[in-house]
Simulated assay, not measured.
Amino acid sequence: MRPFAHIPTIGTPRVATGVPHFLGEGPTWDPVRGELLWVDIMAGDVYRGRFAYGGGIQIEERIAFPDTAGAVAISRAGEMVVAGTHRLYFRAVDGTVTAGPEVIGGDERRFNDGKPDPAGRFVVGTKGPTSEEQLVRFETDSRVTVLDDDLSLSNGLAWTRDGRLLYSVDTLTRRIFVRDYDPESGKAGARRLFSELPGDGYPDGITTDADDHLWVAVWGGGCVVRYSPAGEPVGRIDVPAPHVSCVTFAGPDLDTLVITTATENLTDEQLVQYPLAGLLFTIRPGVRGNHPHLWAGAASRLAPTSLEGTE
């Protein structure tokens, strides 16, 4: 039985794109230009798209970066920051790409999911072979602050509507954490357990809605689950792809939930069984999302070659 099979369903998503991704991830709404951004991590590609009739997404551009593209964020001016394998990459409005210095190392280690915080600082985690993976924040004054350094696989991030709570995912332990967060200073409190997923599914990308419920993409579970602020699952969206990787609210009214999926680690038999795996999906679940945080931009491009101590 699928995990969360007992939770009421919210609706049926529709296919939004025709291009399958090996590891589609990180959908991000750009409210300034009215576009959706997302990544195909291992291909190192960032996609730009616009909503079309009926909830479809028309791909406008595929932008190749030098190595992996774990996450993308955009500034008000239109600059992009992309989490590469060991460093950040920056794409200017004119399309010029520059590389930041190497911040992490290791052949099997890379940056993974990331988002701007309420003040526009870029927060991003790492994926690697150890149980000492990190969640770090790139400050606007050239420092990098370590928020966590004991994770199995740092993944999804989301803030409450007022920015005072930060949710974060440690995928391989199936745990979702929450902590107090000062949206201005970035001071973060001690993390505490919000929820631990049952069964075979793993929490991946997350987002919050205007009612401060948390939406969780369940990798290996073929669904998205909505959690109440108390940590109780209260709704489910079944997706015709086993590896559901991330979610975000998008569109001018922030009333469309965009769901990314992946073909990574699927067998030949599973690819036949799930021909829609790797595509993007959309659904209007009857609630709106929160206004997306924009990256602070060029002022935060500087980064040291080593990390500072845990906050």
Rank of each mutant, 00 (worst) to 15 (best):
V225H: 14
V124C: 06
A230Q: 15
L157C: 01
W219H: 06
R191K: 12
F177C: 00
T98E: 15
G114C: 09
L147F: 11
D162Q: 05
R179M: 10
Y227C: 03
G205F: 14
D150F: 13
L193D: 02
V169K: 09
L135T: 01
T140C: 11
R192I: 03
S228V: 09
E102I: 07
T126M: 11
E102G: 00
D211H: 13
G235V: 08
R192D: 10
P118F: 04
F111C: 01
W159H: 05
E108A: 14
D180T: 06
E102R: 06
E102S: 05
G205D: 12
D212G: 06
T160F: 10
D212W: 09
T173H: 13
V218D: 12
V123L: 05
Y181E: 00
A230L: 13
R175K: 15
K187P: 04
H213E: 11
R110C: 07
T145I: 15
W219V: 00
F111I: 03
D141S: 06
W219Q: 03
S185I: 02
D150N: 11
D211V: 01
R109Q: 12
G114T: 04
A188K: 03
G199W: 14
R143C: 03
L151G: 00
L165N: 04
S185W: 08
G128L: 14
C223Y: 11
L147W: 04
P129M: 14
G221H: 15
G231K: 04
E184G: 01
K187Q: 06
T140A: 06
G235K: 13
G95Y: 14
P118T: 03
S142C: 12
L172S: 02
D170K: 08
T160P: 07
S131F: 09
D113E: 14
I104L: 12
P116V: 05
F138H: 05
R161A: 08
T171W: 12
G100I: 07
L165Y: 13
D113R: 07
Y227R: 03
A210P: 04
Y227T: 00
T96V: 08
R226S: 01
G199Y: 14
K127L: 15
T126P: 11
G199R: 07
A230M: 15
E184F: 07
T96R: 11
V234E: 12
G235I: 10
V225R: 09
T140M: 01
G189K: 08
L153G: 00
G186T: 01
E139P: 01
G163P: 09
V123C: 09
G163M: 08
T160Q: 13
L166F: 11
R174C: 04
T160W: 10
